[in-house]
Structures are given as structure tokens and as C-alpha cells.
Design a protein around this nucleic acid. Structure first.
Lengths: 126, 126
DNA sequence: CCGTATCCCCCACGATACTG
DNA sequence: CAGTATCGTGGGGGATACGG
């Protein structure tokens, strides 16, 4: 009956780790890039899809819904024809900016390089 | 022959997203908390395990190996009895500090709260 | 103490097709 | 245009047992 019954995010029997908690919220497959693009302002569904490029409608919708139910992104439906739906960061989402920027900055200076080097130690033995 | 043949991390046909790249490196199930604890200095395997609490040896080893092959964590084996193995951040790992701290800070001020509120909108409809 | 080796399950993710 | 509906799959994650 208790609503907390099904909260199985960060495990119970451990002092909640804030780093883990954050990753739980922004760690989905497409959440990073979605938030990244939403930093510059609201975007329509189709704009997001086109910008990201290789994401299916299903996955984009799914990730957006999760971000929405986490309170990071808001969804606005305009009663028009053809339909228009816009997504933008909520207040809480805005507060993520320094985090996303930290991820972005480190990504540019380190992550991209490390991803390429990763496991390229097969000829190194010579 | 080309060593890049098997790099299937971030998809090819899209301008690499640095945010995504970073999340790819630190986004594993236990990587966040591991890095979090390693910020304070080197730790033995058993110390990490005890500190985290609810992680199996298999998973802890696995995640550490991934961090190692990404160049973020170094592994030092001491030829002793009983065996002692210590993990610590590499130079590249150290450069992650601002990122981890950003995740931590936001986690404390927002993520933990948001995780609890998430999906607690079942009675809201009344 | 610090790992592998097995076995297994679930679900995140994807491809595809259909609708208001 | 912006979604749902269905179905299929890989592999991330876990439990357990064994070994140097």
C-alpha cells in the first residue's frame, strides 16, 4: 500500500550515493544527448529527432517521458494541425546545466580520446 | 586489420556528443560510486567492497576492469600473502574530479529528492 | 584476500508497422 | 507530426561456487 514500496532505484541498505542518484536520472541511453541539446532552449519532437539523427521515435519518446516523470523536462502540446509538441528543461532541469557542462567539457577534453584508445592494447605487447 | 573496426561505442553516423561519451565511460552500474570513493585516495579491493556494501565480487571486479581499460583507474598488485590489490585514480581519472563533484553536488541538492518524488503522482489525479 | 567460471534472467533497446 | 503497439534480442547484471 505504501507508495515507496516499489522504489528500487538506489538500493536501500546503503547510504544513498548522490553521484549514483544523479547518474540514475540522467544515465539513460539517450538522456545525455537530449539534455545536451535542450540546454539551448525548447525543441519540438521532430527537431530533437532530426538533430540526434539515429534514434527511433519509440526510444526518443520513452526517454523523454522518463525525463518528464523525473521532473527534468516539460512537455507542451499545442492543439494544432499538424500537431506540435515542444520539450524544454524545467526549473530543476535548468539546475542541471553546470552538470551537463561539466560532462561536456570533460567529454571534449578526455572522454572522446579515451573511448578511442580503450582496449587498443592488442599490439602494445610487441 | 584496422583496430577501429570494433569500436561500437557512440554511433558512427552522428557528430560525437561529448556528454554521451562521458556517460559511456562512467555510466556503468557501479562506476559512479566507485569513482566517488576513489576520490579520497587509493583503496584495496576489500575496502571498496565493504564500503559499497551491496555489490558482488564479480560485479565489482568487472566494473573496475572496465574503468581500468578506460584508463581511469589503475590497479596495483602487491606480491604478498595474503594478496593485496589497490585501486586508485590515474591522471586521467583525477581529471574527472570536477565532474564527479558536480554529479555529487547536484545529487545532494536535487537528485535524491527527485528520485523519491518520481512517479508519486498516482493520487495527484484526485 | 582477490579474484574467475557458470548459469540464468530480465529488461533496455531496437525494428517495424500502424494511428489520431 | 507525434506518437502507441508488438515482437524480438543481446548483454548487463546477479547468485553461487570454486581456485590461486
Amino acid at each position: 500500500m505504501d507508495t515507496k514500496e516499489k522504489n528500487r532505484h538506489v538500493d536501500y541498505d546503503r547510504p544513498a550515493c548522490p553521484v549514483e542518484a544523479t547518474l540514475e536520472l540522467i544515465g539513460g541511453k539517450w538522456k545525455g544527448i537530449i539534455l545536451y541539446y535542450l540546454l539551448n532552449g525548447r525543441l519540438r519532437f521532430s527537431e530533437l529527432k532530426r538533430t540526434i539523427g539515429c534514434v527511433t521515435q519509440r526510444m526518443l519518446t520513452k526517454q523523454l517521458r522518463e525525463l518528464e516523470s523525473s521532473g527534468l523536462v516539460s512537455r507542451t502540446v499545442y492543439a494544432e494541425v499538424p500537431p506540435r509538441v515542444e520539450y524544454e528543461l524545467t526549473k530543476e532541469g535548468e539546475s542541471l546545466k553546470p552538470v551537463i557542462n561539466a560532462l561536456k567539457k570533460w567529454g571534449e577534453s578526455h572522454a572522446l580520446k579515451l573511448l578511442e584508445q580503450r582496449q587498443t592494447s592488442e599490439d602494445e605487447t610487441r
